[in-house]
Deep mutational scan, measured.
Amino acid sequence: MPSETPQAEVGPTGCPHRSGPHSAKGSLEKGSPEDKEAKEPLWIRPDAPSRCTWQLGRPASESPHHHTAPAKSPKILPDILKKIGDTPMVRINKIGKKFGLKCELLAKCEFFNAGGSVKDRISLRMIEDAERDGTLKPGDTIIEPTSGNTGIGLALAAAVRGYRCIIVMPEKMSSEKVDVLRALGAEIVRTPTNARFDSPESHVGVAWRLKNEIPNSHILDQYRNASNPLAHYDTTADEILQQCDGKLDMLVASVGTGGTITGIARKLKEKCPGCRIIGVDPEGSILAEPEELNQTEQTTYEVEGIGYDFIPTVLDRTVVDKWFKSNDEEAFTFARMLIAQEGLLCGGSAGSTVAVAVKAAQELQEGQRCVVILPDSVRNYMTKFLSDRWMLQKGFLKEEDLTEKKPWWWHLRVQELGLSAPLTVLPTITCGHTIEILREKGFDQAPVVDEAGVILGMVTLGNMLSSLLAGKVQPSDQVGKVIYKQFKQIRLTDTLGRLSHILEMDHFALVV
């Protein structure tokens, strides 16, 4: 994948999101292997301009796509893939009243899908469409860049269908997702969380590099694949309309690839034109409109599966009536509230959605109805927002919020430890010299600072030695090549209790 991002070429006709291997024109390309080798690009942008032909009021008969309808489940399912879809609609009884809503608040519980998330729908649909058009064949390999849930859905379907599955996901995604993927037989590649989507090191860039190296491999490409919004247009939206008897006044959905909100909203605009569509985008993402909503100094966020630093091709923002931004604290607070007060075992993005819903639905009156999409299960986040310690460490809970008995030293300040200034190293000294210094002084790690004293990161003896043994660096290389740029900081005025929580999850903390 090139470091400079080429513009994806656009073909003359058809839909841009065809499933299957992508040609340089962004659509299915038939021909000899030699032709494909000559024409197939190194990668295709996940934010390529959409060429979708959908228009409100256009006859369904003019759609270029294969459409399906929700099917009634048999008493005995032939395999677990038949437990994807037909998820329950559940009334939220307490939270709406707590925040003064007059309307009825309903939750579409997508964590009841077989793999635990709304992404099971698009995973199965992308595979079925690729099999139907002859792209996927027995023994082929599926590769997908994902925040985890699409990966789980694909790995689940691949396990049943017999495909090899490789999932490329950023490091910030939970260990629970990784464990589930491994249990399903998927191979996992992790990428830096802070890598831009168009960087060769991003999950998108690495996935395309693997595709170019592995024979008979395919990126189904949830960011561009029409099967993504079509899955929701054909099934999720129809289920909502049936469950609500066609009567709903507002739908609120958090947005990642945009397939969920695009597919549902398009069908609702056709069948229930008075329904307002509300999009939820986390602070630090750029999906919301108008652009002024996205202006923030924050560039990272903890909530998973929603928000991006690019506009995915499948996201149709014209069908969203209003956007709201959400933050991590309210997302996790509301997710825990949904679990504790409503018994809905949902993930953090569901918290984002409901946090926005109780604001947006203030305009609705008694007798009206708001539906929220709860995308995934708490299963993926047992060591994250479900953990009091994690919430404390991230600053989303305060010590006084917890009532468990603490040891005698818990409320003492870090400054009472009488710490001395640490050994520091410059980023320009060599790895070999740094190892000598650390061994001589008896230290395992040291902060790396520039000549102005600005902290650049941390270097550890173990990481340097393993990097040297693996051949990633040489003793003569500058130590700046092996620094940890993500590390926890703590102030002298913070409590030892807070430091204790940090050290339970990290090997060190830097006192500043």
Rank of each mutant, 00 (worst) to 15 (best):
E4Y: 15
E4K: 15
G11V: 08
T13I: 09
H17V: 15
S19F: 09
G20T: 09
P21C: 11
S23H: 10
G31V: 15
P33E: 11
P33L: 07
K36H: 12
E37R: 06
E37W: 11
E40A: 10
R45Y: 02
D47S: 07
D47V: 08
D47T: 06
P49N: 08
S50P: 10
C52H: 03
T53L: 05
Q55V: 11
E62Y: 14
P64L: 09
T68P: 14
P70N: 10
K75V: 15
P78Q: 09
I80Q: 06
I80L: 13
K82L: 02
G85T: 02
K94L: 14
G96Y: 04
G96N: 11
K98R: 03
L101H: 02
C103H: 03
F111C: 01
N113C: 10
N113R: 04
G115M: 07
K119N: 04
D120K: 05
R125W: 12
M126Y: 06
M126H: 06
I127A: 11
D129Y: 08
E131A: 12
R132M: 09
T135L: 12
T135S: 02
D140G: 08
T141D: 08
I142K: 01
E144L: 02
G148N: 03
T150F: 02
I152K: 00
L154C: 02
A155C: 14
L156P: 00
A158R: 01
V160M: 09
Y163M: 01
R164W: 04
M169F: 03
P170I: 00
E171W: 05
K172Y: 05
M173Q: 05
S175R: 06
G185A: 08
A186P: 03
V189M: 11
T191Q: 00
A195N: 06
A195Y: 05
R196A: 08
R196G: 10
H203D: 05
W208F: 07
D221I: 01
R224P: 07
P229D: 06
A231K: 07
T236C: 05
E239C: 05
Q242F: 08
Q243S: 06
D249S: 06
M250G: 01
L251C: 07
S254G: 05
G256F: 00
G259A: 05
T260S: 12
G263W: 01
G263V: 01
A265L: 03
A265M: 07
K267N: 08
L268D: 00
G274S: 06
C275V: 12
